[in-house]
Write a protein that binds this DNA or RNA. Structure first.
Length: 661
RNA sequence: GCCAACGUAGCUCAGCUGGUAGAGCAGCUCACUCGUAAUGAGCAGGUCACCGGUUCAAGUCCGGUCGUUGGCUCCA
């Protein structure tokens, strides 16, 4: 064996190093700065400790704080540091698992009957910082299984013992830093020193191994940074997120509300929120008409038999409101009654089945803003993003297998139109494919699936839509294309969805007559560009921080007379704008104009028109754009042209005009 | 559904180790008639989420219920 190995760096350069070289040594050979910043090293596709010897040819990348995997390693090591602090403060504490997460880390611990609350976190943080300053190295050690078992048996940590049961001898490693040793696969950063800023963010209960029959452990969440400044920035971002929280803005802007008396998870739209919602719906209705959709309307309930046929009842009984029973179990052993609809598709199949369809009729596109009710688990409810009653911008397309690709293109075009009109520039498309190793799970033939998956792929490509493919993510009844949207704070939400369905046409025995004069099975496509109006508006509020594009703003123009002597003129301005189709409020309250401006600014009204004697004499309005301040007086007609033009451009997605928050 | 924290006026929040509630904003009234982010004064507003217990006495302590939030689990 040669004593030299070849290391390939990310830029493609190859260098020879002595066998057993460490990531740290490679970093040092590149630059002293890199060696100081290095947290871990990626060897081929695995992240390793910086001081672990590399013994064969490999691709090597030095990981720093700037690499996601570097931060993960940093946070994983921070979890160990927190565990060390907990052991110091609460002797006898037992440990579950303590991984890094997207933003920070947590550790599940058993405090043995002791309780800790948010007030204890500061002490733990202080202890962590004290320990971090000791600059203790994270030392990796391979441990025989019996020795590992003996260690945790002695320590009395049954959780680690259970974890050990699943591990094979020879694959077990311990990591020790300072006085704390943990069963851990690693990797870790070289020492505790880089952990400078510590914030423990939350305490929550979590079952051991996610199993509700197992003991409940205390999960402590935290995040750490190499610099205090970065922690400060992180906390600032969190504060910003709170400012944009749709629940807070929804109340402040009077968009929606909840009432205990109505019930949890059942949102009510206030007048301003309802305007917003209707404006969105009208926009989509127009776009759908352009694309060959036909509106339909169906009732809010359906017979249980309908949902037995569709397969939704009783299979999804747990997440449905209990049925309205007319008859308990009858002779056939089945109850009879009605169900509040959890989906619109069964109703739509019956509209399709209302008449005999020729292949010449297809595709049939049935669209409805259908309100559905699902009994989400109480712990899942939250704001508008998870509710029990919501309206889907639902449509079902019945088509031939050959038409699937064009229909997907049509829907992609529609969805992109919607996203552009709302300034969602940063979205992700995901094609969910079947898991080829589990063919039995799926309805339809492999040939059908291959064709459908290929059709979706091609549709996305031809529409210029970059989509990631996820194998095994498809539903049992068909592949799908989902749109995930990031809000302004980088959180990801699934909104729009397009799903192919082989199942329902089969279950409802839907047919069309082909050119061969025989009956054929149509394919069904479920699609919803918004997904649910409720969730979509919730995400939209957070995306724009309540500063809606002008075409959507509940109040588009506030007319603010300076004194009572110009109220008549203000009223006239308001009337003319309203006649032009704008949503206008005229503020004739007996207040100073500064106060009225503040009110309109706080309510995030896009345009304020201040009118006084001067404007009245000249037939002008003094325009003030939300967040920007006074822009001077213009004739009312000029303002009307401006705002109309702006809204048209916004809807076409040509302008990303958002006023300052 | 499970765990934890929380629940005081429409909103945001005070209320120490138990001694029957307080501010700001919003609302109403009055005065001021005002030129680009809060005019002043006054008034009114609470079964302290609900139910039960401990106590001479409960917003405060204990138990339960409901709700909210954060997690866990689930999501046609």
């Amino acid at each position: 064996m040669p004593d030299q190995i070849t290391i390939t760096l990310p830029d493609g350069t190859r260098q020879s190093f002595p066998r057993g070289v460490t990531g740290h040594e490679i970093a040092a050979s590149i630059s002293g700065g890199l060696a100081r910043q290095a947290l871990a090293v990626k060897v081929d596709d695995q992240v390793w400790d910086l001081h672990r010897p590399i013994t064969k040819d490999a691709r090597v990348q030095i990981l720093t704080w700037n690499d996601p995997e570097g931060r993960q390693t940093f946070w994983h090591s921070s979890a160990h540091l927190m565990a060390e602090a907990l052991e110091a403060l609460y002797p006898g504490v037992k440990f579950g698992i303590g991984p890094a997460i997207e933003q920070g880390f947590y550790y599940d611990v058993d405090l043995g009957g002791r309780k800790i609350g948010p007030e204890d976190l500061a002490a733990i943080e202080a202890k962590m910082q004290e320990l971090a300053r000791q600059d203790n190295r994270y030392v990796r050690r391979e441990v025989p299984k019996d020795e590992a078992v003996a260690y945790f048996r002695e320590k009395g940590d049954e959780y680690k013992l259970e974890l050990l049961e699943d591990l094979r001898d020879g694959e077990i490693t311990f990591y020790t830093q300072g006085g704390f040793t943990d069963l851990c696969r690693g990797p870790h950063i070289p020492s505790t020193r880089p952990i400078k800023a510590v914030k423990l963010t939350n305490i929550a209960g979590a079952y051991w191994r996610g199993d509700e029959r197992r003991p409940q452990l205390t999960r402590i969440y935290g995040i750490t940074f190499p610099k205090q400044k970065e922690l400060d920035e992180y906390l600032e971002r969190l504060e910003l997120a709170r400012q944009r929280d749709h629940r807070k803005l929804g109340r402040e802007l009077e968009l929606f509300t909840f009432s205990n008396k109505v019930g949890p998870g059942l949102p009510m739209w206030l007048p301003k929120g309802a305007v917003l919602r209707e404006t969105l719906m009208n926009f989509l209705k127009e776009e759908q008409l352009k694309r060959g959709y036909q509106p339909v309307v169906t009732p809010h309930i359906g017979r249980l038999e309908l949902y037995r046929t569709s397969g939704h009842y009783p299979y999804y009984k747990d997440s449905q409101f209990p049925p309205m029973l007319l008859r308990e179990e009858g002779d056939d052993g089945e109850e009879e009654g009605y169900l509040l609809k959890p989906m619109n598709c069964p109703h739509h199949t019956q509209i399709y089945a209302d008449k005999l369809h020729s292949f010449r009729d297809l595709p049939v596109r049935l669209a409805e803003f259908g309100t559905v009710y699902r009994f989400e688990q109480s712990g899942e409810l939250g704001g508008l993003t998870r509710v029990r009653g919501f309206t889907q911008d639902d449509a079902h397309i019945f088509c031939t297998p050959e038409q699937v690709k064009d229909e997907f293109k049509n829907v992609i075009d529609l969805t992109l139109t919607v996203l552009r009109a709302l300034n969602f520039d940063d979205f992700k498309a995901q094609i969910s494919l079947r898991d080829p190793s589990d063919a039995d799970k799926y309805i339809g033939t492999p040939e059908q699936w291959d064709a459908a998956e290929q059709a979706i792929r091609e549709a996305a490509a031809e529409m210029g839509l970059e989509a990631v493919e996820e194998k095994g993510e498809a539903a049992f009844y068909g592949p799908k294309l989902d749109f995930m949207v990031k809000d302004a704070l980088g959180r990801e939400w699934q909104l729009g969805t397009v799903q192919l369905d082989y199942n329902l046409p089969e279950r409802f025995d839907l047919t069309y007559i082909g050119s061969d004069d025989k009956r054929h099975r149509p394919v069904m496509i479920h699609r919803a560009p918004f997904g649910s109006l409720e969730r979509f508006v919730g995400v939209l509020i957070e995306h724009c921080g309540g500063n809606f594009p002008t075409w959507l703003a509940p109040v588009q123009v506030a007319v603010l007379p300076i004194g009572q002597d110009v109220e008549a003129y203000a009223g006239d301005v308001g009337a003319r704008l309203r006649a032009a189709g704008l949503r206008v409020e005229v503020d004739t309250r007996n207040e100073k104009v500064g106060y009225k401006i503040r009110q309109a600014e706080v309510q995030k009204v896009p345009y304020m028109l201040i009118v006084g004697q001067r404007e009245q004499e000249e037939g002008t309005v003094a325009v003030r754009r939300h967040g920007r301040g006074n822009e001077g007086a213009v004739p009312l007609e000029a303002f009307l042209r401006r705002i109309r033009e702006e809204m048209a451009e916004e809807q076409a997605g040509r302008r990303a005009e958002t006023s300052a928050p």
